[in-house]
Nucleic acid binder design. Structure first.
Length: 555
RNA sequence: AGUUCGAUUGUGUAACGGUAGCACAACAGACUCUGACUCUGUUUGUCUAGGUUCGAAUCCUAGUCGGACUACCA
């Protein structure tokens, strides 16, 4: 496969810029999160994009926290964001903060005042909103719009000095109240907030608006390609206006369409609701589309990067099928996860012709696709646990498992033939009775038989137990945000089903937090951080593809 | 209404005037000591209407549909 991978539209722009010698061929991107929440899969895409582009074109990528709103931002979020980026496999060139530029930004504001391009406004928030106009109506000039430069300078200085209360005054850019782009109708540059900032403490009581900080921060850092999502496209003319009036480095912003995923929600507001209203256990609940949640669920960084690569990047609205994400997760886990046996819904299998009290050990591959993963031993005895669904009293068509008269291979052990079963008064099968073929021993099979089915099993006296949390998609509908009514009414009630007593191989008892396993024929699972010495907890990361389930569905 | 971005199979993304391709999903089959993995094959697409051209997903015109914008949030 030597075919060239085609370029996405950002790579095309970058390669053109390099070809034309723009910025001396230098490429510098940045990832600019606000430290007011946890990163989600949408951010992961942006991280992969920005860091990936820098890597590909031998450039640099900064991590810059856009921390211009002290009320919502916290150091805790800074730490979680840094952790997630590192975990995803990326390293930033500089760790920066918009708050590092507060003094410089203040200077920019003074410059604009002196050029007659900014003014202090005494209007209230309501008055400003009321005079903003609308998409079909121009706005009205503020009565304070024509204050003298000297007066503006003095008032702005007093704002900084703490002479005024929150909301009493703002600094606004003097652009055009009739501009067709609402964002250019004298946008706010500074507001008063007597609030403690996570980094600058109490040294400021005025804070720049995002729009007055973001573009200039990029400029200060000499970012060549400032990449963000489409909803900021209307802000670009404003950033360009500030940059031009200030005569500073012309960073250029490029916008791409944010990625949406089926069966989930992505907005911070909605995710926050899920957490606050206890629909999930926290930001890192394995059902959350947060990076921390997916990590806990057992998704790997490699799978997330692969997913990001595969879905590509464009400008049209989209909703990516979550099965693609799941495919990427399986693809990676298939390579790295050791196979083990676990019986989730047990029924006892008794081998009638196996001697009482006899035990054997069978050797089996940890990963048949990876010799280096090694082998392990499985204890075997007369009584085994098997999966309840692997037995049918009256077998369906194409059912290749156990039913009276049918044979299966016990994985890595013997071929057994079902001779009968026992039921309780309620009609539930309590025991399956089989005979085994001693000459069919795995690895040394002289029986000459081939059976269609192979099932997993666990020796009753040797099996240990664990708690298993079976996760499924969080919502019942593809696009919960687009349905009528409250998105939360579409939560999947079965998104987490806890199995408190699952049988596992004895070797699994020492599994460690975060380890990935494939429970053969059942799916990929990982050890949850809630595990204790007494109670091991596994999360189901994702199921295996299941052709039989499809067959059953078809009826 | 204004500004602005967009429209290629069920989903995502290519094709840069010259055979509409790739991945996922779906379907059919092969293989299988995991009904997994792997492999093979199949179905489904250029928003509409005009125009330019030997030739249009691509260029032009007009329309249609969808998104975003009217926070002292980012």
């Amino acid at each position: 496969m030597s075919e060239e991978k085609s370029l996405n539209f950002l790579e095309e722009i970058i390669e053109n810029d390099i070809a034309e010698g723009k910025n001396g061929g230098r490429i510098h991107t940045r990832f600019p999160p606000e430290p007011n929440g946890y990163l989600h899969i949408g951010h992961a895409t942006s991280i992969c994009l920005n860091f990936g582009l820098a890597n590909k074109y031998n450039g640099k990528c900064n991590l810059r926290f856009d921390d211009t709103n002290p009320v919502t931002e916290e150091t805790e979020y800074v730490e979680s964001i840094k952790y997630d980026i590192k975990w995803l496999g990326f390293t930033w060139d500089n760790e920066l903060y918009a708050s590092d530029y507060f003094e410089q930004l203040y200077g920019f504001a003074v410059t604009l005042i002196k050029k007659g391009l900014a003014y202090v406004d005494d209007s209230t928030a309501e008055e400003i909103a009321a005079t903003k106009g609308s998409t079909f109506e121009p706005g009205k000039n503020s009565p304070y719009r024509d204050r003298s430069i000297e007066e503006n300078l003095q008032l702005f200085e007093e704002m900084r000095a703490g002479k005024y209360k929150d909301g009493e005054k703002t600094l606004r850019a003097k652009i055009d109240m009739a501009h067709p782009n609402l964002l250019l109708r004298d946008p706010l540059m500074y507001r008063i907030k007597h609030a403690h900032h996570h980094r600058t403490g109490d040294s400021w009581c005025i804070y720049p608006m995002y729009d007055f900080a973001h573009g200039q921060s990029d400029s200060i850092e000499h970012i060549t390609h400032s990449i963000c999502t489409l909803e900021f496209i209307h802000h670009r003319p404003l950033y360009d206006w500030f940059i031009e009036q200030l005569g500073i480095f012309p960073s250029h912003q490029y916008e791409f369409a944010r990625r949406n995923l089926t069966y989930t929600v992505m907005s911070k507001r909605k995710l926050l609701q899920l957490v606050n209203e206890n629909h999930v256990t926290g930001w890192d609940d394995p059902r959350m589309p947060t990076i921390s949640g997916m990590r806990r669920r057992g998704y790997t960084a490699k799978a997330l990067r692969e997913f990001s690569d595969t879905i590509g990047i464009a400008k049209r609205e989209n909703i990516v099928d979550i099965s693609l994400l799941e495919f990427c997760v399986r693809e990676d886990l298939n390579k790295i996860a050791n196979r083990v046996m676990a019986v989730l819904d047990p029924v006892k299998l008794v081998i009638t012709n196996y001697p009482d009290g006899q035990e054997e050990q069978f050797e089996t591959d940890n990963n048949p696709g990876d010799e280096a993963a090694g082998k392990r031993w499985l204890p075997f005895s007369k009584e085994l646990w098997i999966e309840r669904e692997d037995f049918m009293e009256e077998p369906a068509k194409k059912f290749f498992r156990l039913a009276p008269g049918l044979m299966v291979r016990l994985k890595s052990a013997y071929i057994v033939k079902c001779e009968g079963f026992k039921k309780d008064d309620a009609g539930n099968v309590t025991e399956v009775h089989c005979s085994y073929l001693p000459e069919s021993k795995s690895g040394n099979d002289t029986s000459g038989l081939t059976v269609k089915g192979t099932i997993h099993w666990l020796s009753v006296p040797h099996a240990k137990t664990a708690e298993v949390r079976m996760y499924d998609r969080l919502f019942k509908v593809e696009d919960p945000s687009n349905e009528d009514g409250d998105f939360k009414s579409y939560i999947n009630p079965d998104s987490m089903v806890v199995l408190p007593n699952v049988y596992i191989e004895p070797a699994l008892a020492s599994a460690k937090d975060g380890e990935h396993y494939q429970f053969m024929r059942k799916g990929y699972f990982c050890v949850d951080k809630d595990s204790t010495a007494e109670n091991l907890v596994f999360n189901r990361t994702v199921t295996l593809k299941d052709a039989w389930a499809k067959e059953v569905k078809k009826g």
